[in-house]
Nucleic acid binder design. Sequence first.
DNA 1: GCAGTTGGTTTGACTTCCAAACTCACTAGA
DNA 2: TCTAGTGAGTTTGGAAGTCAAACCAACTGC
Lengths: 124, 124
Amino acid sequence: MTTVPLAELPGRPCPIAASLELVGERWALLVVREIALGSTRFGDIVRGTGAPRDRIAARLKTLEAAGVIGRTAYQERPERFDYHLTESGQDLLSVLDALLAWGDKHVVAPDDPRRLKRYRRLTA
Amino acid sequence: MTTVPLAELPGRPCPIAASLELVGERWALLVVREIALGSTRFGDIVRGTGAPRDRIAARLKTLEAAGVIGRTAYQERPERFDYHLTESGQDLLSVLDALLAWGDKHVVAPDDPRRLKRYRRLTA
DNA sequence: GCAGTTGGTTTGACTTCCAAACTCACTAGA
DNA sequence: TCTAGTGAGTTTGGAAGTCAAACCAACTGC
């Protein structure tokens, strides 16, 4: 739901910079990955990302404000939420897939023991 | 040149997290964009990104250590460098293109006055 | 000489990030 | 009923990162 006015960016008025304004903070893209992989609750997202709890709480708020994720209560008293990707969040998976391909090619060592369990593209 | 051992990541041993370990810091991807757009020198990169000078100095170092960019001296006394993308850096442009497409669709307002000057994909 | 340019580094204030502890509302077991 | 445990955050205090602005060093042009 948030839009970023190109004129307010430092440097070039470029959509890439605008995107990073919304999802460039630490852990933001991993939260999206985690939800895409099926973690819908706070604790699952914390475990899946390995991030500090307060950071996940903060990111869930900014990502919701940005319209990338949404939440729906799954119980009252105390109120608790399931998090899910919006259409905007789904479209972000193309960015994650590009990072996945790049990481596999250039960042992860070819002989990394954990590499055999390959991750698959997140998009359908 | 840097590889990231999946076992040392918090959370899932995922190449996406490994990638973000190298290029997830603030300004890193915009430095890559800027070099891709033809800025090869320190001052040009500072202007193009709009980032603080000390941040650009720091990113150029980490990106070089990560093997994403390289530099070649274009003069001695004082020693000065041109920065360029390595093969790894070139491959990162697919990530930037995905961010560009996402930003254009979901982040930049359709009626943003600066939007008419469309950016093109960075990959060939 | 002296101003201007380039490519940084340094400074000090501010913001973000972190791990760990804490809170709150509930649930399960003894 | 007392105690232990769980889930979802919030709080805390210190470390790390970020920022704008000033500074510096080595040139270049006048």
